[in-house]
Computed example of a mutant assay.
Amino acid sequence: MNRRIKTLAWGAVPLVLLASLVSIDRIPGTNINLSVPYAAEGPGPTINTLGEVDGQDVVSISGADLDDTEGNLNMTTVSVRTGMTLSQVLARWLFTDDTIVPIEQIFPSGQSSEEVEESNRTAFISSESSATIAAMNYLGMPVMVEVADVVEDSAAFGHFEAGDHLISIDGTPITTPGEAQEIVRSKSPGNDVTIVFERADAQSQATITLGEHPDDPSVPLLGISMTSVPTSGIDVDYNLEDIGGPSAGMMFSLAVVDKLSPGALNGGKFVAGTGTIAEDGSVGPIGGIAHKVRAAEDAGAEVFLAPADNCAEAMSAKPENMTVLKVDTLSQAIEQMAAYNEGADYQTCG
């Protein structure tokens, strides 16, 4: 009997050690990391773009009379968990609707977490700019290009400051960041470009030798991030921290249109959605939409606006009490909401 007890006791040791190993992310007293190379994606926070965060309007507009808004136009997000132990990954796979993905999908090989965060921040700024342009185009208001930031030690460093307005490049007038990027990308590293810009109501000119993009030396780099602002004195600001990527673009654009036009685009209802936005108003697909649909329904949304190319994945979330509308453009999103509110024909993803 004693031998059997000893055998069972010694046999349990490897199981105890294994259970300990799958439950810790680092061996005590060492720098050995035991977290597994996987991430969990799940429903993230959903934020009303017509509301406030930390006492500030999510979409703040000055320089114009604003229309009263009603209901919700919620942007949706995906939460990402990394640095998990094997037991944590298994628990999320078994007991939640999270998607388990290789860590390379979150942090591409060769990129640090800081580089990924910077890339997401840049994409978010670009999304804000496109949202403003698309909204202004829909409303028939002209825009101009404004410098949002200048990369230190880049070709543009020392020539431009945040808030400068770019007027033309090599004699070609520009009104959107996309037009400016197209002209720059048509050049080669080492080429000179002449940029006319405005600072404090005074016009200036700078000739700049383009640098090389750090990820591809054959791509020219000016070294500024740009946004668009209305020429009519209207100022649009997006006040969200710790949100990256371009997927809030369409909802931002809808919030701008709603605040600058009469009536409630959503009919006073709780509408949520996602999708990138281009300067011409076209809506593009995003990742993780099934999680965003679940988050929106859990938050009480009645309607969800989904990019047409994401429809199949959106419906895989099997929403029961929420209508998922298919959209391709900003104007179509507005038309779809109007049709839903008026009881007319609208197009769903189902």
Rank of each mutant, 00 (worst) to 15 (best):
Asp164Thr: 00
Phe304Cys: 10
Trp10Leu: 13
Glu198Ser: 15
Met84Trp: 01
Glu335Cys: 07
Ala278Gln: 14
Ala202Gln: 14
Glu198Pro: 09
Pro189Ser: 03
Val53Gln: 12
Gly110Ala: 11
Ser218Val: 13
Leu18Ala: 15
Ala156Asn: 09
Pro177Asp: 05
Phe124Val: 02
Asn120Thr: 06
Ser188Trp: 00
Pro246Ala: 04
Arg3Trp: 02
Glu128Met: 09
Val229Lys: 03
Ala295Ile: 05
Phe304Asn: 00
His159Asn: 13
Leu90Ile: 14
Ile169Ala: 12
Gln205Pro: 01
Val58Leu: 02
Glu52Val: 04
Ser20Tyr: 14
Arg3Gln: 11
Met251Asn: 08
Val143Ile: 02
Gly223Leu: 09
Pro214Thr: 09
Val16Phe: 09
Val196Arg: 12
Pro214Ala: 10
Ile61Ala: 05
Ile100Lys: 02
Gly171Ser: 08
Gly11Arg: 07
Val22Pro: 06
Pro230Met: 01
Ser316Gln: 12
Val151His: 05
Arg81Gly: 12
Val196Ala: 11
Gln181Phe: 12
Thr323Pro: 02
Ser204Lys: 00
Val257Gln: 01
Val116Asn: 10
Phe160Glu: 04
Asp149Trp: 01
Ser218Ile: 12
Lys269Glu: 15
Thr172Ala: 12
Gly268Tyr: 00
Thr329Pro: 02
Val147Ile: 14
Pro319Trp: 08
Gly287Tyr: 05
Ser218Leu: 14
Val256Thr: 07
Met337Tyr: 01
Phe95Leu: 15
Asn31Leu: 07
Gln332Gly: 13
